[in-house]
Every structure is written in C-alpha cells, then in structure tokens.
Design a protein around this nucleic acid. Sequence first.
DNA 1: CGCGACGTTGATTTGCCTCAACGATTGTGG
DNA 2: CCACAATCGTTGAGGCAAATCAACGTCGCG
Lengths: 183, 183
Amino acid sequence: MSDEEIEFFTSNLNFRKIRRRQYILQEGDICKYYTFVNKGCLRLYNVDENGVEHILQFAAEDWWIADIGSFYSETHTSLYIDALEPTEIFQIEKPDLIEAFIKYPSFDRVFRVLIENAFVALQKRVLQNIGSTAEERYLTFVESYPQLVNRIPQTQIASYIGITPEFLSKIRKNLSQKSSAKS
Amino acid sequence: MSDEEIEFFTSNLNFRKIRRRQYILQEGDICKYYTFVNKGCLRLYNVDENGVEHILQFAAEDWWIADIGSFYSETHTSLYIDALEPTEIFQIEKPDLIEAFIKYPSFDRVFRVLIENAFVALQKRVLQNIGSTAEERYLTFVESYPQLVNRIPQTQIASYIGITPEFLSKIRKNLSQKSSAKS
DNA sequence: CGCGACGTTGATTTGCCTCAACGATTGTGG
DNA sequence: CCACAATCGTTGAGGCAAATCAACGTCGCG
C-alpha cells in the first residue's frame, strides 16, 4: 500500500485503552467499530439462556475483531466483546472504513482477504466441532494458538472448544500422564 | 445492477448438468469455480480418518457453493462437492470473476455481502454446536431450511448437525410423541 | 426378483456434564 | 501489610446424552 493510503487509514484510527473485564460491545448494541488489538487480548462471545458464555473468537496482538453481522447490517448484536487483560486498541468507524474502500480499492481487497481467511478458519472449526472429540479439539487449539495457551485462563479455552472447565482439567491430566508414560 | 453488468456476468457462466452422486470437487483438486445451483441440490463436505462424512453446507436452488479457501488461494482442497439429486449448475471461473470485480465494483460488493452473510451464519452454527443439544440443533435446522427437510435423506441432515443417523431417528420419534401427546 | 440405500429400534457402552468439595493464587480494601 | 474474598484449577462420585453395534423392515431400482 502507498504512503498516502496508509496515512489516510491511520488518521482515521482511534486509540483507546481498555481495562480488564471492560466491555467494548454488549448485547443490544450496534457494532460501530472494526477493532484492531495493539496490545492485550479481547474475546467475542455470547451468553446462552442458562447464563453460560460461549466464545466465538479471541483477539490478541495484531488481530482484528468485530461483530461483522451487526457492523455491516447495523442491527442489534447478541454478542459481547470484552478484555481478558488490560488492552490497547485502534478502532475505525464504519463510515471511515467505507470511505477507505471507495477511495482505495486495495483496502477493499485487504478486508476481503481478512474475512475470507476468517471464514475458512471457521469452516475448519465447524468440522472439528461436529467430527472430533474434546481432546482432539483441545490439541488443535494448542497447535493453532500456542501463544494463547499459557496466557488466557483454561476456563476460557474450555468455553471456546465447547466443554466444561472441569472436563478440560481432566483432559489435561490425562494428556500429561500419557506423555510422562512415554519417557 | 445494470444490463451491461448482467450481460457481462452471464456471458461468463458455464452451464452443466450433474448426475446424482457425481463429484464436481474432490480432495486434492483446486477449486476452479464458483458454482450457482439452478436446479437440484449439492453438498460440501469432508471425510475424516474413519471414513465418516461431515457436511459443511448444502446448496439447493439459487445458492452459491465453492471451497472458498481453495478457490482464492489456489491450494489443494480437502473437501468434496457432489450432487444429492440430478442438478443443473452455472459455473464462473476465477479469472472471469476477478475481471468482473475489477470492471464492475458492484459485483465486488455482491460477493462481499455473500461471504459476510455466510460468515455470520457460520458463527451462529459454531455457537449452536458448542452450546446446544442435538435436539435443539435439529429443530434449528428444520426452522432454517424447511425446504430441505423433506427433500434430502435424514442421514445427510444428521451428518450436517453432527450426530449419528440412529440418534436423529430417536430424536424425531421423541419429538413426534411429544407433539401427539399435546393433542 | 434381489440388492443397496435408507430409516427404525433396542441393548450396551462411553464421553462429557453436573454437583460438590477443596487447595492455590491473586487482588483488594481496611 | 495483612485478611479476606474472589478467581482459578483440580478431583471424585454419579448421571445423562449420544455413540456403537446389531438386527430388521421398507422402498426404489437395475
């Protein structure tokens, strides 16, 4: 991308610091921003009728996060975004992003690729969810996001892969016994 | 879209007839086409190490289907697409689609919206998979795709929602008993 | 007709959940 | 700076949802 493009884009980014547990999106809101994580870690999740949280996505350094559906169609979200750690973010508002798309088609391409990649990753996740055991899903998570495993609470990982924290604990115990038995 | 745009687009569509069980994409291929279903029904799925099929998507009349990841990055797919019924399709090749995107930004927007909607739908499916019982997932499927329920084999629906055909049969029996008990 | 695809049913097993209890660690207010 | 609460991970007993395996009925089709 050219200097002009980058200048235009960055001049429309808003910097914010978020405290741990602070929300940047709540059920009922309309998602006004595409959010880039500079430092820290956010999570995107819903809360079911029993009050249980189910995590759709984590976003640590250099990841984008948003409720895409709410953002583009300007409908009320049923999701939450909050911070797992003190976090620094850059946010771009929809009108500015759209303007960037129109002025500079390369942005359009960048964001298209972004969502395509996210889409493909989500498809893999669906296949895992419907075809693999909890242990396999955990191992895939560890492989895919090694930088998150020792950073975020196990409770959160359990919620992401769709099991209870207790059961994740048992899986990990089982795995460590297997690996120690090998040596 | 203008007449010119539609003319350009449709002139690049290739018509094909597909027999039941015929493949239009197999593991190892590169996905060369975006496929539009004019009549009939296709499915996109993978096959796991035990030989079990897991369905990512159905595509009946007026739906688009492709392995997006393989199509855009030109990598070998691990997925299959085949026909559940005799099917008529229109296919557009990647170079023609890209040309359409460049010449007519409105196509770009149409296909962007297409993938955004698919992405949002997939997110809902992930949330269902990690947060709902098999019965709830089946009921959601019936609600979301009423036109498919009495058209495709139950085996296929079971594979889509991530359960065995036997268990789906038991769920349906259970549901019909509940509803008849009401009357 | 006979075979293969599909759906059903039952008996048994297993993966994962629920609930309850208990350490270890963190952080927070007095 | 300590005390206490809240958060997090672990463990175990018991229960339930869904898988597995096997058998059987039905239908459409070559």
